[in-house]
Design a protein around this nucleic acid. Structure first.
Length: 592
RNA sequence: GGGGCCGUAGUUCAGUUGGCUAGAAUGCCAGACUGUCGAUCUGGAGGUCGCGGGUUCGAGCCCCGUCGGCCCCGCCA
């Protein structure tokens, strides 16, 4: 590269008119008029038009004929004001152009699979395979830069609050959190494995015992579970832990931090304090523990009202201790029979056997329930639902968990479909008072959060008799229906920790083996402590207005946990396996 | 582990009941053109219809299997 860059493509303005500049970048578009060639040159900062004129410079004009999209060049030229009729108001440098006097071709380029611009019609598979081209697109550059600005702002903020960033190991031991571990074989300890951390949970607690008082980390976490639009096998969490604090301290800290981010990034002020919603109430009103509060459509319990009718489906459900709840769907009165059938089969995904409905078509009421309920009851239903002409009321009757899942999902589904969710609106909410335990599918008691979460003190007496009634000192932060973080006040006393482990069916031997180090640490003057972890990509996804975290992760994996760029995972050489004392079952694993 | 949608030119897609040489747009290549910026005009090249098997006189289309992408259930502090 002979020419030394003096300016960036996107930063030139008419103030630079007359200057001799050296630019470097990618050829974006060639418009060859035979006697005159225009080229858009792009770099990270934007686009500027180059002009090759044979009357100005024969040699570079000749070279310009060979240029194609994606070629890398540098050039020296002088900045010139465009003729008034040729100004392009569509780009920031539209008032000027650069007349090229000398050019160096730095690298040619194959024809591009897709152009590096924002509006492309190309599948994600192709984008991921050529991720370096995808990331050249301005929108992806913005997402990358947004991520950097967010982490920088978080570091500054936490630094100002007396926090210290500390790294914890990637090669660690399997922790008892719920997810499947990624394992790493140990060469020097045959048959033994490290686990990649699902979170630095125990390390950050140990750091509190170590007197660090305020810790944070941009912590990479690994979970070998199936992927979703908001889940990758590895993700970064903003991991935070503090000593000598209560829930309110965490709430205030995170509220201040998120407010700062939204102010700095979007220029939006989030009102603080954020509202708090008790877990049970969230389930009752929204059917989920991560409610989207940007719109209403709450679930209304009509069980007692409806019990006076003689509709067998409802009565059977109620007799078995279930419930009948309903959702008001603004504008749903015009739903067709087919649409309602589709919704009916859609809710079966969530275990419901179907839906029932009342359509308010002007003054008319269309409903299969008409034959089973008196006019008075139907009117009362409409009153309780606060339904208006043109609305639909959709019922689900089942046991409470099914009603919550089905109606909760239906609420989201229909709100999206009917465009009822306001844009540029951000509604954070704390979900609090989670249960400490739940029963898993095999009827065993498990932690809802994790086993180091402190029970609420007033519920301690229920630990033995009614463990699922015990509330945890745990909290989630939910933003626009996305769980962007969660945490808890931890157990800092060995006795309580031991009794929780015992309740979880972990005997003393296993407890000592798996986290004896924690129990021991708790015995050496562990301070009361607690913390939170925020899912960085989810937060940035919301700030960026994207709908998948893959849009804010430079090199994400596909739903089958494959990196299409590098083709990881891959087979490894036999020798590598042998060195690691690993034998692979032959049937599904060819070797190289 | 399961459900749904999808896979045809570099890219995005169309392709009838199974029937001529598989099309369009864009991109690409060549030529023309001195004010374009989605340049324009003329011409051209470009296909393992994801892969394997089956049915059939004949398969892009039907059947079975398989691989891959997306969304979801289960799973997931």
């Amino acid at each position: 590269m002979r020419l030394k860059r003096t300016h960036f493509c996107g930063s030139l303005t008419k103030e630079d008119t007359g200057k001799i500049v050296v630019l470097a970048g990618w050829v974006r578009k060639r418009r060859d008029h035979g006697g005159l060639i225009f080229i858009d040159l792009s770099d990270k900062w934007g686009i500027v038009q180059l002009v090759f004129n044979p009357q100005e410079n024969q040699e570079s004009y000749r070279q310009a004929h060979s240029l194609r999209d994606g070629w890398v060049i540098s050039l020296r030229g002088h900045v010139s004001l465009r003729p008034a009729e040729s100004v392009n108001p569509g780009i920031s440098t539209g008032e000027i152009e650069v007349l090229v006097e000398e050019m160096e071709i730095l690298n040619p380029c194959l024809p591009l699979p897709f152009p590096p611009e924002d509006k492309i019609e190309v599948g994600e598979e192709v984008r991921l395979r050529y991720r370096y081209l995808d990331l050249r697109r301005p929108v992806m550059q913005r997402n990358l830069s947004l991520r950097y600005r967010v982490t920088k702002a978080i570091r500054n903020f936490l630094d100002g609050k007396g926090f210290m960033e500390i790294e914890t190991p990637f090669l660690t031991r399997s922790t008892p959190e719920g997810a499947r571990d990624y394992l790493v074989p140990s060469r020097v300890n045959p048959g033994q494995f490290y686990a990649l951390p699902q979170s630095p949970q125990l390390f950050k607690q140990v750091l509190m015992v170590a007197g660090v008082d305020r810790y944070f980390q941009m912590a990479r976490c690994f979970r070998d579970e199936d992927l979703r639009a908001d889940r990758q096998p590895e993700h970064t969490q903003v991991d935070i832990e503090l000593s000598f604090i209560q829930e309110e301290d965490i709430f205030e800290l995170i509220e201040e931090m998120l407010s700062l981010l939204f102010q700095e990034i979007l220029g939006i002020s989030l009102p603080t304090p954020f509202p708090k919603l008790v877990y049970q109430e969230a389930l009752r009103r929204y059917g989920t523990d991560k409610p989207d509060l940007r719109f209403g459509m709450e679930l209304i319990d009509l069980s007692s009202l409806i019990s006076s009718g003689n509709f067998r489906v409802f009565n059977d459900v109620l007799a078995k201790g279930g419930q009948v709840k309903a959702l008001r769907v603004p504008g749903g009165g015009s739903f067709s029979r087919k649409k309602l059938d589709d919704l009916k089969s859609w809710v079966t995904l969530y275990g419901a056997s179907g839906i029932s409905w009342i359509l308010l078509r002007g003054k008319e009421i269309a409903s299969p329930l008409i034959n089973y309920f008196s006019q008075d009851i139907l009117k009362e239903v409409i009153t309780q639902m606060e339904a208006e002409p043109g609305d639909a009321i959709i019922f689900v009757a089942d046991k409470s968990e099914v009603v919550a899942a089905a109606l909760g999902q239906l609420r989201l589904h229909l709100a999206r479909e009917l465009n009822l969710i306001p844009r540029d609106n951000y509604q954070p909410v704390w979900i609090i008072d989670f249960p400490l335990f739940e029963f898993d599918s095999q009827g065993r008691l498990t932690s809802l959060h994790h086993p180091f979460t402190s029970p609420q003190e007033e519920d301690l007496p229920k630990l033995k008799k009614a463990p699922t009634k015990v509330r945890a000192r745990a909290y989630d932060i939910v933003l626009n229906g996305e769980e962007i973080g969660g945490g808890s006040i931890r157990i800092h006393q060995r006795k309580i920790q031991e009794s929780i482990l015992k309740l979880l069916g972990i005997d003393e031997v296993e407890a000592r083996d798996k986290f004896g180090f924690l129990l021991e640490a708790l015995s050496f003057g562990a301070p009361p402590h607690g913390g939170i972890a925020l899912g960085l990509a989810r937060l940035i996804m919301i700030l960026a207005g994207e709908h998948s975290i893959r849009e804010v992760i430079p090199f994400p994996k596909t739903q089958r946990a494959i990196c299409l760029l590098t083709r990881a995972p891959s087979l490894v050489a036999r020798d590598q396996l042998k060195e690691l004392h690993i034998q692979v079952e032959a049937e599904d694993a060819p070797t190289i």
